[in-house]
């Protein structure tokens, strides 16, 4: 019963505190921007070339693969940062303001509080991603055509899992510290570590950022090797984030 109340509050908070609006708006914007950028970039380059006499720029015609690449680029660079900024105060902010102490003085378990929070954030993220994906799908079909719906869903599932990893790392940072700013800095550090790990030889191919490469291959209809190790590592990392957050939070004095 308490879990339901907590979950309801978290979902309501995503809406009322305008987190869903911020995330949804960002995903929608970059969802639209991907195919449009891919379509217009060669035209812009050509225009730039005509303004300089004697220079002829030959840009290849835009393709579906460019649109997918641009969409994945946004999902991998800008949107994780927006996810981080929108969720870094989820636990730390409540500790800072004292609202969490009021909740924990009631007969609720600390684990339930964390699970409800992470679930609320995940729902907001997935809703925002769905919005962005629908926009991207529509515009890609209009501007390029030939996008396979199943491949597009698979691509978004893989990219969504990567974003969930970023969300979980931010959530862990937020549970470990007592200020929103510190949580943001720590989460950014975790994200940078993740990116560094992905560039390491051998280890790198099993890290969550590889999901984005996989997603791009799936979306473009290229033969994808199936990065199952990265997928399982990502799921395990999400679980580890939640467990470590709980181990710390259950002993924390508020």
């Amino acid at each position: 019963m308490a879990m339901l109340a907590l979950l309801r509050k978290e979902l309501l908070e995503q809406w009322r505190a305008r987190r869903l609006l911020v995330l949804g708006g960002a995903f929608l914007f970059f969802g639209l921007l991907g195919p449009i950028t891919a379509k217009l970039t060669p035209e812009l380059i050509k225009l730039a070339g005509t303004s300089a006499p004697g220079i002829v720029i030959q840009a290849p015609p835009p393709s579906l693969r460019d649109a997918i690449a641009q969409y994945i680029k946004n999902l991998s660079e800008i949107l994780p940062l927006i996810v981080l900024l929108a969720t870094m105060g989820s636990v730390a902010g409540e500790k800072e303001r004292g609202t969490l102490a009021m909740v924990l003085a009631k007969p609720v378990g600390r684990g339930a509080v964390l699970v409800a929070k992470l679930a609320g954030l995940a729902v907001a993220l997935l809703a925002a991603q769905l919005l962005g994906a629908l926009a991207a799908y529509y515009y890609t079909q209009v501007l390029f055509g030939g996008l396979e719906p199943v491949a597009f869903v698979q691509m978004n599932l893989a990219a969504g899992l990567y974003l969930l990893v970023v969300l979980s790392l931010t959530f862990l940072a937020s549970a470990l510290v007592r200020s929103t700013v510190a949580a943001g800095a720590l989460a950014f550090g975790f994200w940078v570590l993740l990116l560094v790990a992905s560039s390491l030889p051998r280890v790198g191919q099993h890290t969550p950022p590889v999901l984005l490469t996989w997603a791009a291959q799936l979306g473009a209809g290229q033969p994808a090797g199936g990065q199952w190790a990265a997928l399982w590592v990502s799921i395990a990392l999400i679980a580890v984030c939640l467990i470590v957050a709980w181990l710390h939070f259950r002993r924390e004095e508020l």
Binding site: K9, E13, R97, G98, T99, A101, M102, A105, K106, P107, V108, G109
Partner: peptide, 17 residues
Amino acid sequence: PASRRRVGYLPEEPSFY
């Protein structure tokens, strides 16, 4: 949690959503 079911607590500076 059983003890918290029997207690009502008002901190010095109550914070709400």
